[in-house]
Nucleic acid binder design. Structure first.
Lengths: 232, 232
DNA sequence: ACAAAAGTGTTCAATTTACACCCATGG
DNA sequence: CCATGGGTGTAAATTGAACACTTTTGT
């Protein structure tokens, strides 16, 4: 019995980091400097190291490749991607992670070579290296579902935000429009979702909006179900 | 640079196979014949082989260890479990899969040694080897959610079933009781969920129930949200 | 004064829930 | 003829969507 009883595989992590920027859903991508898929956009990620679990690898890669401290970023595992031919370099199984970030001042604004950048999701989809389009699709679906059941919309927002900004997250991630009046009431009626800071912020025009910060709740009950409509 | 840039890990699959039996949610377990955790119940599973993807490994292990043909069983990936100390034999990352089965005539009724058996979930939880309790918890939560959004309740049922049997699936998996009258209407109002066979089946007592088989639909719209109540 | 965004009150329709009541069978 | 589970009808309660209207600012 010379043949091994188990396959020799390498484990990697790939990160789907989403934000809302310029009224669009945007994705953190690097441009590949090596073959395969040289020059193509790809998800940040890399191989698992010794004595490191997957989450730690994800946090490390995020810091190395993008300069984003994984500190406050909530990472959620999306799943394992293991199609035998997904990577021409060999048998590599990758575990996808989703992270949601506020609109940050452009990741590594000129730090190291590879330079991660935000890219509009609608323009980059279909062009990603490896099976990264599939990972992104699954992660996006997860992000959309999370808006329904959790308070994760505030993860897209800065420390303090207006009701309009929060609503925009829902509108952009779901690709629909919501009634601002009903939205506001619904959110405020959900115990622990957001808390008023007491301050207001002047807008470009119009009445200044009250400012809020995230509350202690993490799960939404009842959920905010998105209306079913076709989008992208 | 003698040190490797990546960890040496082995990949495995673990299967959470659920059914409803004797009015209880039951789990397919094997009793471990070797160390570690010898004598303890565990999930069926095993190592990934060369030129085999995770799903294929799950189907193969299911057939080998339990005699269940993976044919019609729908396998859903739950996630990767990778805590470094989860398996004392070394660095083993396992991918969990969920399968839902009808009440089968006891898996390997005396075929090979290890013999998988059904075990009541409430008695076996907390006693499983490795981190299998955690995998089961995640899979169970997934199964409960699937009942809300998909027609997967019929996966728990035989080819033909009564409305009462289908309702029992919901009641047992969710751990609540449902109004039979409203339940029936709700299911029948969902296009493509189930189709009447035209036959009826005499009960132990009471009016014979109409028989149904599963319809073409797979996703439920609108979903059947479970009422929030505390359970087990 | 006007445009624009925030926010309140109210109405109406849709959905959910509860439950009275009838049906069909075995003992 | 009664217990038991299957099934229909209907009214009350809850929820959701629509929208008129008021508030508060910058220009």
């Amino acid at each position: 019995m010379e043949s091994r009883d188990h396959a020799e595989v390498r484990l990697a992590v790939d990160l789907v980091v989403l934000t809302v920027r310029e009224d669009r859903l945007q994705l953190l991508v690097i441009v590949r400097g090596n073959q395969p898929y040289r020059g193509r956009p790809a998800l940040p990620g890399g191989f698992l190291r010794e004595n490191e679990d997957l989450r730690a690898a994800a946090v490390r890669e995020l810091a190395e490749e993008t300069g984003l401290a994984g500190r406050s970023l909530v990472l959620e595992q999306i799943g394992a991607y293991d199609a035998p031919e997904r990577d021409p370099r060999g048998r590599i199984v990758s575990v996808g992670y989703l992270a949601v970030a506020p609109d940050l001042p452009v990741p590594t604004a000129g730090s190291d070579a590879t330079g991660a950048t935000w890219a509009r999701l609608d323009t980059v989809r279909g062009a990603l290296a490896f099976d990264h389009d599939e990972i992104v699709s699954d992660a996006l679906e997860r992000a959309r579902t999370r808006l329904e059941y959790t308070t994760s919309a505030t993860d897209f927002c800065a420390e303090v935000f207006t009701m309009g900004e929060l609503r925009q997250i829902y509108e952009i991630v779901w690709g629909i429009t919501l009634d601002p009046r009903n939205f506001s009431r619904r959110i405020l009626a959900t115990e622990g979702f957001i808390e008023p800071t007491g301050d207001r912020r002047a807008q470009v025009t119009g009445r200044p909006a009250a400012l809020y910060r995230r509350g202690p709740a993490s799960r939404l009950n009842p959920p905010m179900l998105r209306p079913q409509q076709g989008e992208q």
